[in-house]
């Protein structure tokens, strides 16, 4: 725990997932200087909340009313959902592509890859299967 510095100077960045926990000047290494913007981050949460509310209202509004062309609705909803997930990741979970955030982003990329593989792989394979397979009625007849 020797790397912990509970002083107020880091409070602005303390909760970023990959924020640098080093102090401005490390007593163990006087050559090391860290530039810290030290600003508060409740603004980030407020902006994230505003964007998330807008996107939520847009997707519920599009689903309930008939503003959006019906065949295009699934794509519209998917785009809004992905946008809102991005808002949550950036403004609430503070995922960013800084040097220290690289590992986080790489892991996230791998996670998204697995999720896509599982979801779309299952859908494609099962749709194919139900096309090829005879229906249950036909199977019953074949057994007789």
């Amino acid at each position: 725990m020797s790397d912990e510095h509970p002083g107020p100077e880091l409070s602005g960045n303390r909760h970023a997932i990959n924020r640098n926990p080093r102090p401005h000047s490390d007593p163990a290494d006087p050559n090391l200087h860290v530039e810290d913007d030290g600003t508060t981050s409740s603004g980030s949460y407020l902006l994230g909340l505003a964007l998330a509310i807008l996107l939520t209202l847009a997707s519920f509004g599009a689903a309930i009313t008939h503003i959006v062309w019906a065949p295009g609705l699934p794509v519209f909803l998917a785009v809004l959902a992905i946008a809102q997930m991005g808002v949550h990741l950036v403004f609430f979970m503070h995922v960013n592509a800084t040097e220290e955030g690289e590992n986080t982003v790489l892991a996230l990329g791998f996670g998204i890859f697995i999720v896509m593989l599982v979801v779309f792989g299952s859908i494609i394979i099962m749709a194919n299967l139900s096309n090829i397979m005879p229906s249950m009625d036909q199977l019953m007849k074949m057994q007789r």
Binding site: N20, H33, D37, S44, N96, T98
Partner: peptide, 13 residues
């Protein structure tokens, strides 16, 4: 607005 990490670790030079 922050939350991002705008830190840069540099040496004495």
């Amino acid at each position: 607005m922050s939350g991002g990490v705008n830190t840069a670790v540099v040496d004495s030079h």
